[in-house]
Computed example of a mutant assay.
Amino acid sequence: MDKFSDMAMFVSIVKHQGLAAAGRDLSLSPATVTARLQALEERYGVKLLNRSTRHVSLTESGELYYKACIEILDNVSEVENLIQNGVREVKGSLKVVAPKDIGKQYILPILNEFSELYPDVVPYLYLNDQISNIAESGMDIVVRYGELADSSLISRRLAPSRRVLCASPEYLAKHGTPSTPQDLVNHSCLVMLRSNEELKTWHFQERDKKKSITVVPRRFSDDGEVIRRWAVEGAGIALKSVLDVQADITNLRLVTVLNRYMKNFNTSMSVSSADLNVVYISKKYQPKRIRLFLDFLFERFNDLVEESEKSRM
């Protein structure tokens, strides 16, 4: 078998989390997939997968090989597309994942506009706050808040942002406005869940002084859009990205509090820790549809930032 077929098989095993499932995807018997995987590992002299009867996981060498396979196969697909359809035609899938609030308020209309310009590009929009392994997710573009630890990926700032504490005017009129972080223990707070972790310890900084407060949760959700809606409905105080709630603040549905403090879900208080970023796998030959959408996305967000700055003047 040629190396490209082996790469496609290996990617299918990882994607479908099993040799039998990959065999069904590629119309190969489980015995054939097993034999080819063993031959692949013998060829390179390394173990690529940890295998059990129900699960497979990448070894360190396997992760390197998987990332290389994805990039090479994508590049080959792009070259084939250019040869068959000409350099001017833009087509293929475009997989984008974003947090629900940002995804619905900003990414969705931008993606709709892009689709009108390039109707042969098929968009996939995933609304998910939980993407952790971008390389294995199959996504082309990940929109996310905060700094990036994985240096093998490209991360570019899409828009500056910051964390704000916010509540509805009705809630504050009924329960009072906190004047210090410590006052939050006497308030109903709306708390995010992230990978089943309750983000109920909120961190504050005023000048050089730092303080952490464990709030009293009124409600929990792993969906940032739900947290925002609860805040608008008067259920309590939420810690949100200002981009998520800007329209609510502008229209007086939400009011920010404790504005003299920097705030975050973790101890990082760097200026960029709450910025909105675009993350993607570094590729020497980025497919044209992805390059075009990245340029389009940054252009639209630049317009949004400029409009926001004008409205504050």
Rank of each mutant, 00 (worst) to 15 (best):
G224T: 11
L165Q: 03
V90T: 09
V242Q: 10
V271K: 13
F301K: 06
S161M: 02
D150M: 00
I131Q: 04
L184W: 10
Q246L: 02
L26Y: 11
A35K: 15
R51A: 09
I237R: 05
D101C: 15
D208M: 14
D208P: 00
E42Y: 14
V226C: 01
D129N: 15
V14D: 02
G234L: 04
A235N: 08
S77A: 15
A68G: 04
D6G: 03
F298Y: 11
K200T: 03
L94A: 04
S273W: 01
N196D: 15
V121T: 14
K284F: 12
Y285M: 14
S115C: 07
R36M: 01
G234A: 12
K284I: 09
L199A: 05
H203V: 05
L48W: 06
T53G: 04
A167C: 03
D244G: 06
T59N: 06
Q182M: 11
E225A: 15
R300Q: 13
S155Y: 07
L37I: 13
L254T: 02
A20E: 08
E63V: 00
Y261E: 02
G146Q: 09
I107M: 07
V142M: 01
E198G: 01
I70K: 04
R144T: 09
Y171G: 01
S151W: 14
K284T: 15
N259I: 03
Q17V: 04
P119S: 08
K47D: 08
L190I: 13
P109S: 00
